[in-house]
Design a protein around this nucleic acid. Structure first.
Length: 225
DNA sequence: GCGACAG
DNA sequence: ATCTTGTCGC
């Protein structure tokens, strides 16, 4: 965690100490992540979370969709001032607060959440999606557009495993024919197999509907301000 | 040592 | 992530 940090004047020695402690916390909390299915067999509602930025402000959006139809049944937004810089592997410092806040505003309790960012496909096996799922103690799936660590094994078809060391930390999923894959990993209380299945069932475009809608809603909230 | 690195 | 028009392709 030294690379881009030196390129950012805002990161003083004090911040470096905070990151050191954060790493330790991430490694510790990663042990509490549940990587098997602990969610309803029949999913009725699924939620998507995304954050957009403008000036020094973050706009979080949460949307709940009816699983069977992918229709929006509820949406909420929440914004706050943002001063924390983006630092790879520490995305939670920026996005967890607005993500948790906006998720708590939902009246409908979804069976599973889809969060923008990695879950276990993280150097310390504790990406934003794990953090989110653990804090809210709810089933969560991590979906990212780019790889943070690990490598995709060019094996079979539908989805390819993301390998880091000896373990499978996620899956590269092709949600649409001629486009780049998206990276799916366990957030909390959902197995990788189920996570991939859910992502595929929610895909009409490259980005699965819950996150795609959350993104649009966050963008809309940003514009109207 | 150098490069890479979710949003 | 964000700043941005037209354009190629399913």
């Amino acid at each position: 965690m030294e690379w881009k940090i030196l390129a950012q004047p805002i990161l003083d020695s004090r911040m470096l100490l905070i990151l050191k402690r954060a790493e330790k916390i991430q490694r510790y909390l990663s042990k509490a992540v549940i990587t098997y299915d602990s969610l309803p067999r029949e999913i009725k509602y699924i939620a998507g979370i995304d954050i957009a930025y403008s000036d020094g402000r973050a706009y979080g959006a949460a949307v709940v969709l009816e699983y069977k139809t992918m229709r929006i049944i509820e949406e909420k937004t929440y914004s706050l001032n943002m001063t924390i810089p983006y630092i790879p592997t520490f995305l939670f410092l920026r996005e967890l607060p607005p993500a948790i806040a906006v998720a708590r505003m939902l009246k409908v309790k979804p069976d599973v959440f889809m969060v923008e960012g990695h879950g276990r496909a993280h150097p310390r096996r504790f990406g934003l999606a794990c953090h989110f799922g653990l804090v809210l103690n709810t089933p969560t799936i991590g979906v990212a557009k780019g790889l943070l660590c690990g490598e995709v094994r060019s094996i079979n078809d539908s989805w390819k495993p993301i390998i880091d060391g000896e373990e499978i930390i996620g899956a590269a999923v092709l949600t649409r024919k001629n486009s780049k894959p998206i990276y799916v990993s366990v957030g909390h209380k959902v197995s990788l197999e189920t996570a991939v299945k859910i992502v595929l069932e929610c895909s009409r475009h490259r980005i699965p509907e819950p996150i795609r809608y959350a993104h649009l809603i966050a963008e809309k909230a940003k514009r109207k301000t």
